[in-house]
């Protein structure tokens, strides 16, 4: 192949082994231990529902409970990004891992700013695309998280030969902004993000 890939043959994780949220509605731990197979025996719009007594939508009352943004949600946001070299997701290549995502709450009670720290693990230590991947993760999170989050993306210590240099690049706001002005680079990143759902 004309493109010399840094790592032509990476190890791949199986989707079943990737961390995922237990399907929420079921995770409410049904007391009976069932999977809800019989819940749909009677169609939702059957004759026992009476539409005349006003709107029935008040049944949606669990709006009250707040579901906070957590590490798993951050993981779900970025694990589906494609690797720039392979048509595989960063999650299945173990470039992003759930234990390497940290949400730091606001430092003082008066501040509303939380910080998301993501440490990425390149597939090999001399991966030249580590910066691009880091940038991709950063762009994705900045697009997908509310402004009260500050995003910090780094290369995990010891997983890359020049991790300090790359981290400096990723942490430097001006350099990041300049990189995002670069059409070719944005093209690559857009392609990486195109697999995100």
């Amino acid at each position: 192949m004309e493109i010399d890939k840094d790592n032509a043959n990476p190890t791949i994780l199986n989707p079943s082994d990737l961390p995922s949220r237990r399907r929420e509605p079921l995770a409410k731990q049904r007391d009976d231990g069932g999977s809800g197979l019989f819940d749909h025996l009677v169609p939702a719009y059957n004759y026992l529902n009476d539409p005349f007594d006003g709107p029935a939508s008040s049944g949606d009352s669990d709006d009250g409970s707040v579901e906070d943004i957590d590490e798993q949600e951050i993981y779900d946001l970025i694990s589906s990004i494609s690797d720039p070299e392979h048509p595989l997701s960063l999650g299945s290549l173990a470039v992003v891992n759930l234990p390497d995502i940290f949400i730091q709450p606001p430092t003082s009670p008066r501040s509303a700013i939380s910080t998301v720290l993501v440490e990425i693990t390149p597939t090999i230590t001399h991966c030249s695309l580590a910066t691009v991947i880091g940038l991709g993760v950063r762009v994705r999170l900045e697009q997908a998280l509310p402004p009260r989050f500050r995003v910090d993306v780094r290369i995990k210590k010891g997983t890359h030969s020049t991790d300090d240099a790359v981290n400096k690049q990723l942490g430097d706001k001006e350099r990041v902004a300049a990189a995002l002005e670069n059409g070719t680079l944005m093209g690559v990143i857009r392609k990486m993000l195109s697999t995100c759902e």
Binding site: E24, P146, R148
Partner: peptide, 17 residues
Amino acid sequence: LDDRKREVRFCAVRCRA
């Protein structure tokens, strides 16, 4: 993006993208 419900946030992320 800061909706209280995860499901809504998920839709918001897609929509915003």
